[in-house]
Simulated scan of single mutants.
Amino acid sequence: MAASSERPPPRGDAILIAAQSGRALAQAARRSGLRPYVLDLFGDADTLTLAEGYRPADGRFGDGLAGEGVLAGLDALAAMADKPPIGIVLGSGFENAPDLMARIGRCHRLLGASPDTVRVLKDPLAFAALCERLAIPHPAVTSEAVTDRSDWLLKRSGGSGGSHIRLAGAGRAPTGAYFQRRVAGTAHAVAFLADGREAAIVAVTEQWSAPSPLRPFRYAGALERAAHEAPALSPATLSQVTAVIAGLVAETGLVGLASADLLVSEKGWWLTEINPRPGATLDVLDRRDTPLLAAHIDASLGVLPRIEPAPVDAAATEICYAAAGYAPMPPLDWPDFVRDRPQSGTCVPRDAPLCTVFAAGPDSAATRDLLRVRAATLRTLLAPTEEAR
């Protein structure tokens, strides 16, 4: 019998993804057996390979996505699917846009935090008031002028990635920004799943920055320790943080995969913010038997999954920022450990995220060493194109 010329029906449910960078979510969707339709700012080569359908978003990295284009793009992506997508997962870029989230939710099922939850958690003054009411250690915030500016940071409401953080200046905080008191400590993030009532801890990651002259607090990367290593947080600290997360979930109705950012020192710890969405550590964490995006969807629908043991080995990612502007990006033979590879011919501004480097190893030290070697390898690969600028 002759083979049929018709295409086989697509496998897996369609799902919409919208984020500043949608590649990690698209990869997580594929691992979950879903077909991702992606809207983001970058349209890198990896995302286009993973996506069943793609549309570019308007906006600027760190500032979020522009509203009307998002709605039109999502409608176009939904129309591409053979049947209505099961819903939409929102990544970074919507922290300061609960009204836009609500408009999206009227057309597509939100799989993650509700607009009202995001409104409370990402409004810095409302969140600080909530922390004070629940006796959660949280740095002081204000929009009023501060006297000793060296003790304060200027942050943009709803900002992400750390590039928006500056040293405090004179006068009141500009519109859409606020001051936060500086506190000492090393940066950690506690990833968790929530069903609106309870929370379950997924993992703890250690984080670090990649300072530049204009962006001294720019996010760089994160690492999850190997299973046999000492935990990144003491049992007492993790117990306290777990209780705090449970209280915030119960207060706000937060659902899905989210994370709590901490600064931890010998004197104690501070909760700096809650990220009510899958975050930058998705690549590092999505190594358990059950795909993490499937767990996110279950939790968003009110079913809190069982948390599986951590992988045996350590893993880490680090963002490589462009040391020079590329207009256009030349063709490159990217190594396998690179993700978010920009397409040749596209423009990448100086200091913008260029790509992500991934590494895994038997322990934290070996993984960090491999990450450094791979970052150096990438810099060597890029050097000729940068020198030609």
Rank of each mutant, 00 (worst) to 15 (best):
E6M: 13
P9F: 02
Q20M: 15
R23I: 06
L25K: 05
V38Q: 07
L41H: 04
T47R: 04
L50M: 08
E52Y: 10
E52K: 03
E52Q: 14
R60P: 00
D63G: 12
L71D: 08
L74W: 07
L74R: 05
A76K: 06
I88T: 06
V89Y: 04
F94T: 08
E95P: 04
D99N: 12
D99V: 15
M101F: 10
R103S: 10
G105M: 00
R106L: 08
L110V: 11
V118G: 02
A126E: 10
R133W: 07
L134V: 10
H138S: 09
V141N: 03
V146H: 03
D151L: 15
D151P: 06
H164W: 13
H164N: 14
R172N: 14
P174D: 07
T175K: 13
G176I: 14
A177V: 06
A187C: 10
H188F: 15
D195S: 00
G196I: 00
A203P: 05
P213Q: 11
F217R: 04
G221R: 06
A230E: 12
S234P: 01
T237D: 08
A250I: 00
L254Y: 00
V264W: 02
G268T: 09
W269K: 01
W270F: 05
T281N: 10
T281Q: 12
L282E: 05
L285N: 07
R287S: 14
T290L: 12
P291V: 13
L292Y: 13
A294L: 15
G302N: 01
G302Y: 00
P311W: 05
A314Y: 02
A314H: 06
A315E: 07
T317C: 11
E318L: 01
A327F: 05
R341I: 04
Q343I: 12
P353W: 02
C355L: 03
F358D: 00
F358P: 01
A360V: 12
D363K: 00
T367W: 01
D369V: 05
A375S: 08
L378Q: 02
L381I: 14
T385S: 12
